[in-house]
């Protein structure tokens, strides 16, 4: 999880089934970028709270609030949650469960997802320009998009 104010580029590389979540408070140019790998921290010894959608988002909100962020102003965008391999059954389909969990947690926190680029079968690199709030997603074989 990374937080920056006024300037800087926050970036997370090659999200596969993982999800990148950006929160941006335009009033004070505060940006945060979280990279989660699993849906929930339930029933597990939590060694890294940022690994899970639920505990990760909560900690991100706490950190950003400490930097003066106001939840009602946050612009939220998410990317990732791909299914990299067309495996039969549940194997390798954690991306969809990650997406659902991220969406649920954000809904409970009353944060609306403004734009998203999730699912499909390719990895994504996601960046947030803290000065402008512009979020970009690049992936293999596709033009870079601005979320």
């Amino acid at each position: 999880m990374k937080v920056a104010r006024r300037e800087g580029l926050l970036i997370t590389y090659a999200l596969g089934s993982c999800i990148g979540i950006t929160l941006y408070d335009p009033a004070i140019k505060l940006g945060g970028l979280l990279h989660i790998m699993l849906p929930t921290a339930d029933h597990t010894r939590v060694d890294n709270i940022y690994k899970f959608a639920d505990s990760g988002i909560q900690e991100m909100l706490r950190k950003m609030q400490a930097f003066g962020g106001v939840k009602s102003r946050y612009i939220c965008k998410i990317a990732g949650g791909a299914k990299m391999f067309e495996m039969q059954g549940n194997l390798g389909n954690i991306g969809q469960r990650n997406s659902e969990s991220v969406q649920n947690v954000l809904r409970q926190e009353q944060i609306r997802i403004v734009r998203q680029d999730i699912g499909a079968n390719y990895a994504r690199t996601m960046s947030l320009d803290v000065e402008t709030g512009v979020v970009k997603v690049r992936s293999f074989g596709r033009p870079e998009i601005t979320l």
């Binding site: 090659a14 596969g16 993982c18 790998m37 990299m84 194997l91 990650n98 390719y122 990895a123």
Partner: peptide
């Protein structure tokens, strides 16, 4: 695809 995305599959599993 990107190596990072591929490696995330076993990591998440």
């Amino acid at each position: 695809n990107m190596l990072g995305g591929i490696m995330s599959v076993p990591m998440a599993e």
